[in-house]
Computed example of a mutant assay.
Amino acid sequence: MTLTLPIDSEANYLINRDPLALLIGMVLDQQVPMEKAFSSPWVLSQRLGHDLDARELAAYDPEQLLALFARPPALHRFPKAMAARVQEVCRVLVDRYDGDPARLWADVTDGRELLGRIAELPGFGKQKAQIFLALLGKRFDVRPEGWREAAGGYGDADAYRSVADVVDDESLRRVREYKQQAKVAAKAKAAG
């Protein structure tokens, strides 16, 4: 099963065939709609004129990369911060995984190890790491022993909590409802 978002078919195709595009989509998936986050890797590849490459992005001139992110329509609500974050993630991929994002999840012994690897990426706190782990397990058959447990509630088979659970318009609606309910609950808790 693959990830299917209501975005351009070429953008969907890219995030399903290119591990770096998928990872960049996850990096960008904050403070923007998930459709924007996961379509931006395709837009970035179009602006570069070729497929995404972690080595190239890691070594890219930061100001030129920012220009690619900021050009209208901007790839993210915060193009400067996200261009820098994508570059930082790509540098980790080059330093630790020879520039191959799929090696991030290759040869892990269990879900805990994979969660730890993901959580070491710049900008990936526990929740984001668990969501990406669930996304890999549910949509890309990356399922080391204990992956569901390591992903926490995001790994539940019948969950509708994150991008990992989106396969069609109905599941997207259910994920949005869950997120809205979570926001309301958080506000109520903060209010006290």
Rank of each mutant, 00 (worst) to 15 (best):
residue 124 F to V: 08
residue 90 C to Q: 06
residue 157 A to W: 04
residue 130 Q to C: 04
residue 132 F to W: 06
residue 115 L to I: 10
residue 124 F to W: 06
residue 156 D to K: 12
residue 159 A to Y: 05
residue 87 Q to P: 08
residue 111 G to I: 13
residue 170 E to L: 14
residue 148 R to D: 04
residue 98 D to R: 12
residue 98 D to C: 00
residue 143 R to S: 02
residue 145 E to C: 00
residue 103 R to F: 00
residue 123 G to A: 11
residue 184 V to F: 00
residue 137 G to K: 04
residue 143 R to D: 02
residue 161 R to S: 05
residue 149 E to N: 02
residue 103 R to W: 00
residue 185 A to L: 11
residue 178 Y to N: 12
residue 120 E to R: 14
residue 122 P to H: 03
residue 138 K to M: 06
residue 163 V to D: 00
residue 188 A to Y: 02
residue 156 D to A: 14
residue 102 A to H: 10
residue 127 Q to V: 15
residue 136 L to V: 12
residue 130 Q to T: 03
residue 186 A to T: 13
residue 94 V to P: 03
residue 92 V to E: 06
residue 173 R to H: 12
residue 81 A to L: 14
residue 101 P to S: 07
residue 187 K to N: 15
residue 145 E to N: 03
residue 178 Y to G: 03
residue 126 K to F: 02
residue 102 A to L: 10
residue 156 D to L: 14
residue 134 A to S: 11
residue 179 K to T: 08
residue 148 R to S: 11
residue 120 E to V: 01
residue 136 L to N: 08
residue 161 R to I: 07
residue 174 R to Q: 13
residue 114 L to T: 12
residue 96 R to Y: 01
residue 80 K to A: 15
residue 87 Q to R: 13
residue 147 W to P: 04
residue 172 L to F: 10
residue 179 K to S: 10
residue 112 R to L: 02
residue 134 A to N: 02
residue 180 Q to P: 00
residue 186 A to L: 15
residue 138 K to R: 13
residue 116 G to H: 02
residue 84 A to Y: 03
residue 153 G to I: 02
residue 126 K to R: 15
residue 163 V to W: 01
residue 113 E to P: 07
residue 97 Y to E: 07
residue 146 G to T: 11
residue 163 V to P: 01
